[in-house]
């Protein structure tokens, strides 16, 4: 009897730690997609304003797994989320993609280079850049009018509030995860 094939399959099994990392990333992605769909079904709180809970998961991915995981999670969340809400390649999709990716990049930059910042500050910058990127995207692609930006200041103030609260939530979640050694 030749057991070589069985053995080689056994040897090719990826290490447990790698599988755990992938499983954790997928769990975060599923959570982000769920929150993305939930936020899309909320009644509109103003033009393009949402509480930003899906971006909170991007922040969690950043601190738990690093910048690459955060970027891929933001991308995958917007694409897969749009399958569920039926907005793939519509303006809503483009706006969400611009906001999600910009927020992820800004949060990575803040996390790397701003000394003394906590998740609260990172989330605040993420929320503000998310809102700005949405307006820039609309102005660049759909309605080329600077008048759009007149609506920005009150929405940015709401972003400050939601970003701050989401950052505190992220800190709390990270502290709990670290405490329970998950």
């Amino acid at each position: 009897m030749n057991h070589t094939s069985h053995k080689s399959i056994g040897l090719m099994r990826p290490p447990l730690a790698e599988l755990e990392t992938k499983a954790r990333w997928l769990a975060l992605l599923l959570l982000a997609i769920g929150l993305h769909v939930f936020e899309a079904s909320l009644p509109s709180l103003g033009p393009w304003f949402k509480p930003g809970l899906a971006n909170l998961v991007t922040l969690l991915a950043l601190v738990m797994m690093g910048p690459r995981a955060a970027i891929t999670l933001a991308l995958a969340r917007v694409v897969v989320g749009s399958f569920f809400i039926g907005t793939l390649f519509t303006p809503t999709f483009m706006i969400a993609m611009a906001g999600g990716l910009t927020a992820a990049l800004v949060m990575i930059a803040a996390w790397r280079w701003i000394p003394g910042i906590s998740l609260v500050g990172i989330s605040l910058l993420g929320a503000l850049s998310h809102m700005l990127a949405q307006f820039v995207c609309v102005e660049a692609l759909f309605i080329q009018q600077a008048a759009l930006y007149y609506a920005l200041p009150p929405l940015l103030i709401l972003s400050c509030i939601s970003g701050w609260i989401n950052g505190a939530l992220a800190e709390y979640i990270c502290a709990r995860l670290a405490h329970e050694k998950i």
Binding site: G116, L119, G121, W164, H179
Partner: peptide, 18 residues
């Protein structure tokens, strides 16, 4: 466990940089 905080209220305070 970089910034470990005990409660949501503590986390809401942020750091001086925030």
């Amino acid at each position: 466990d970089a910034p470990v905080r005990q409660s949501m209220f503590d986390a809401l305070k942020g750091t001086w940089t925030d």
